[in-house]
Design a protein around this nucleic acid. Structure first.
Lengths: 336, 336
DNA sequence: TTGTAGGCGTTATCAT
DNA sequence: ATGATAACGCCTACAA
């Protein structure tokens, strides 16, 4: 492969001039720069990553720690992963994938080997064991840990999302509403996103004077049937439904239909789920959504800013971003 | 961070001995090795990735090229990505994520910079533009290109999967069957997996003397309704259905129900889709499946074997693996 | 504006 | 069985 020396020779300059021309860290005459650029293109030169990392003391790589669990809606993970990759490339950074089955040691390995300059932790839990392992590694978390002090975090504003659901149903005149949530285990483990959504919904529902039920629910047909059955038994006058469990959406629509309730005439359904999912049902679902792409993009900005700060010897500023959700009104909600 | 020199000092040996003790490329006395291992553990030493790549002329990284398109079933992509990562770690390799929006240049960049020793191309198309860009880079393709000569490829045996569907329906006594496929655009673009499945199904169906229809289908409710409508209009005696479009499964089940056909008493449905998807419907779907994990694992073995061959100066052998599909009989198929 | 030279941490080739 | 030493390719003071 072509080295910087090859380029220098071809352009009739010294290697350092090529380096400076490429990095822009020192002025280079237009004439010289042009010749260098031409040689670079002709030789298809790209700096050797290892050598660059060794000499420049930064790898130009960030790591992305993805969960192995599949109880989250997987396409979202993928969307974040690709948006992280695309955003990182804009900074001339590459993305290294690591899975949680390496655990905290995986992160220590990255730090010690200098393989990555920073890391993005996906699917962060309230008490995430990877956080203590971060050490001096610059990081951005997608999701909120218990104690986000000194860290950069980004997440959907789930509380606002819950509130938005309550607002919409109240505006439409619903008085009795039900929240069909994730599996009981998720609440037991105090997953942040589940709790925050519920808290936001509950508070706003109370402000509006709504009567409401919360029913955890396995994302299966049977689970949904059970949850809906208990809701209609406990409070038959329920007309507004909020679903935050992707697996329960299809069953819920079928079950409502089967029970003789037309959506949205007899019952309104509002989903907390990605746009793509909301659009693919019949009727198309009114949904409260956050952008997964944004999540990835912002996490990248956060690590990048921390990395450059730490290179300048500055103390990276912690940062907490909660992305506001969007309500998209489709065909599944209406006045009562 | 601790360097190899630190470890050497702590263990009272020379750096090269540490290097050899760690790589095993030269015998080291048990006594010495023990001291070295202790120092390594105490200092939390991990070799600097850049320096190692520079001196050892291999980066211990493979790249994984994921598609940006989302017209494939995304969870599968993610499953492959994680299984690739896990499998790579077994070889002490890390995985770098690159997206197709960098195009062929992304691959050239990897090659020229020595960032990766090999690459796995996901979602390979018949005439994939990334293939010419591979150059001397060791690669494994997931999916089959038009001309797989000189390359290592792994994919599901879609033809066998199609045949398995025909077998099962014929065994159950069905005589008139329909194949509900992907969107017309996919067949127009001659996507390999779609065509191969159809070819395998068609051939075996003919052997069994089945009468069959093929209907491409957008994965929407309306699209599925259209496809099913035309099937029942053209051939009302149809009792066996094969679906190869994830989006059409839910709608198909609903539509059959609506049209008064009970599954599996009046109509049998067999899906070509991941297990997880098949299980989540009611009734649970008889399905023909391939393992996405296997796909990733084998692709890793393929690149690894090519990389080591090329390091030994040997010509890497090309290799074509088609994974046999599995038929899992659940509740959606029965005798007619 | 440009060139020279030292060093980054490993691996691998010599020796011993 | 172990040690010294020369690359590996790049970056960045330091000189000019």
């Amino acid at each position: 492969m072509a080295t910087i020396a090859d380029v220098a020779r071809a352009a009739g300059v010294s290697p350092s001039t090529v380096s400076y021309a490429l990095s822009g860290k020192r002025p280079v005459s237009d004439e010289t720069r042009r010749r260098i650029e031409r040689s670079v293109a002709e030789l298809g030169y790209h700096p050797n990553a290892g050598a660059r990392a060794l000499a420049g003391k930064r790898a130009h790589i960030i790591a992305l720690a993805v969960p192995l669990r599949t109880d989250v809606y997987v396409p979202i993970m993928m969307e974040i992963a690709t948006s992280v990759t695309v955003a990182a490339r804009k900074h001339s950074y590459d993305v290294l994938l690591i899975t949680n089955d390496e655990g905290p040691d995986g992160i220590r390995r990255l730090t010690a080997s200098g393989l990555a300059d920073g890391v993005i932790l996906m699917d962060v839990e309230l008490d995430d064991k990877r956080i203590p392992a971060l050490g001096k590694m610059q990081a951005a978390l997608i999701g909120l840990p218990e104690a986000p002090g000194g860290l950069s975090c980004v997440d959907h504003d789930f509380a606002a999302a819950g509130a938005l659901c309550a607002d919409h149903l109240a505006d439409l005149g619903h008085r009795d509403v039900a929240f069909i949530g994730y599996a009981p285990g998720i609440y037991r483990r105090h997953a942040g996103y589940a709790e925050r959504t519920l808290v936001g919904f509950r508070a706003r529902a109370q402000e509006h004077g709504l009567r409401f039920l919360h029913r955890p629910c396995e994302g299966t047909y049977e689970g949904t049937a059970g949850a809906l059955g208990r809701i209609l038994a406990d409070r038959p006058e329920t007309t507004g439904f909020v679903v935050q469990n992707e697996g329960a959406i299809g069953p819920l629509l079928n079950l409502l239909r089967t029970s003789g309730r037309t959506v949205p005439e007899d019952a309104s359904v509002i989903a907390l789920c990605p746009e793509r999912l909301a659009e693919q049902y019949t009727p198309a679902l009114t949904a409260v959504t956050g952008s997964a792409k944004e999540l990835g993009r912002i996490a990248v900005e956060q690590v990048m800013s921390r990395i450059s700060a730490s290179m300048c010897g500055e103390q990276p500023a912690d940062d907490l971003v909660l992305l506001p959700p969007t309500l998209t009104i489709r065909e599944s909600t209406g006045p009562i």
